[in-house]
Amino acid sequence: MAKKDKYAHLRVEEGVLKHGLPYRALGTGEEPLVVLRWFTDHHTNPEGWEKSVELSQLAPFGEHFRVYAVNRAPGMAPGTTMADIAAQHAEALTEKFGGPVHVVGPSSGGSLALQLAADHPQVVKKLALSMAGYTMGEAARKAQVAYAEAAVAGKRAFHHTAGISFKNPATAAVLKPLMWLVDPFVRPKEAADMAAFVAAEAGFDVRDRLPGIQVPTLVVSGGKDPACPPEICRVTADEMPDARLITYPEAGHTGTFTDKRFAPDVLEFFGVRARASA
């Protein structure tokens, strides 16, 4: 018996926006919602278990919007800046939708989303940031750079992210050797693209521009997030004129976006009351 596709009703499709930005769309709503993907080691639409995780995370939004999960363009040139990437996205989203859209930016996607709101506010209707703020946490910056450098050199790299992947330092210390061992099975598909984006995000810092960003913004922080510490999120919300902060005290980095409260909180911010089953 064929396995039933539980996301069939969400009409999943894939495509490419201007500048080669790959996207996966899903959802029963008419209004678009753009999710700028978190850190990925490839500039393609995720497949396999990564696709399944993405669909499950975005399904609650797909019950109300037509969701477009967008990645950075493949073939990213060395020296590309976050402003360059934001400019590409501004052109692509304007061509696709013709007007401002709601944007969700988790983790690295949040860095890009905030740069987009700063440089091209006409593209963003409302912005929801998760695990992200005006800059990266220093631990995340160092970990991503070390990961990228090792991966490009063909060395084991996965273990460099242990310290920012787990909210408990003891857990990170225990699992770091295991991550070193499994590295050959999770190598980046295209390390050069990932490394170019890592360099762009390493230089990302828009704190001095926060007072001028007028886009209504929700900042969702994890109280135990080692990659984007709560202080960065608090400053981001405090220094923007139309922003508010929600903190999940026990959440780590990825746990912020996957928290059961996240989708309802963001949907409410976008003016939608989530269904009880969401």
Rank of each mutant, 00 (worst) to 15 (best):
A87M: 06
P78F: 04
P32V: 01
F197H: 14
G252F: 12
L210S: 02
M82F: 02
K18W: 00
T247W: 05
A278T: 15
I213C: 06
P169A: 04
C228A: 14
P22R: 07
L10Y: 05
L26P: 01
M131K: 00
V152T: 06
L10P: 00
V219I: 13
V215D: 13
S165F: 06
T254G: 13
L129Q: 05
F97D: 00
V35I: 11
F65P: 13
A263T: 12
T247A: 10
V152N: 01
K3V: 09
R209K: 11
V123E: 07
L33N: 12
I246A: 05
A139P: 03
V70L: 00
Q88M: 07
G223P: 12
M194V: 10
D259Q: 08
G15T: 13
A162T: 10
W38D: 15
Y23S: 02
A172P: 07
E239F: 02
V186H: 08
T254V: 10
H160K: 12
Y68F: 14
G271L: 13
R11A: 15
Q214P: 06
A243Y: 05
A86M: 03
P226K: 09
H43I: 00
D242V: 11
L210D: 01
I85D: 02
G223K: 15
W38M: 14
G255A: 09
A200K: 12
V266Q: 12
A118I: 03
R72F: 02
L127H: 04
F61N: 08
G109W: 00
G99W: 00
E31I: 01
T80S: 08
K155I: 03
T80A: 04
Y68K: 04
P264I: 00
A153E: 04
P78A: 09
A196L: 08
S56V: 05
T161C: 03
G203R: 11
F185C: 10
P229E: 15
R261L: 02
Q214S: 10
I246S: 07
V198M: 13
V145L: 14
E190I: 08
A162D: 02
F204V: 13
A86I: 02
G203C: 07
G98K: 05
A237Y: 10
G223M: 14
D84W: 03
S165V: 05
K167P: 12
T236C: 08
A77K: 15
L218P: 15
D41H: 06
L26R: 02
P211V: 09
P100A: 14
G154Q: 04
F158V: 06
K260G: 01
Y248Q: 09
A118Q: 14
A8C: 14
E138I: 04
V206K: 12
R234L: 12
A195C: 04
P184T: 14
T256Y: 02
T171D: 15
F262K: 01
A117M: 06
A157K: 07
I246K: 12
D5M: 09
A274I: 15
A146N: 06
A202M: 09
M194A: 14
F61S: 09
K189L: 15
G99Q: 03
T28E: 08
G252Y: 10
F61V: 11
A2Y: 05
R244K: 11
T94C: 01
L93N: 08
T217W: 12
H253G: 00
L127R: 06
P106D: 07
R244D: 05
G29F: 05
F257I: 06
T256S: 07
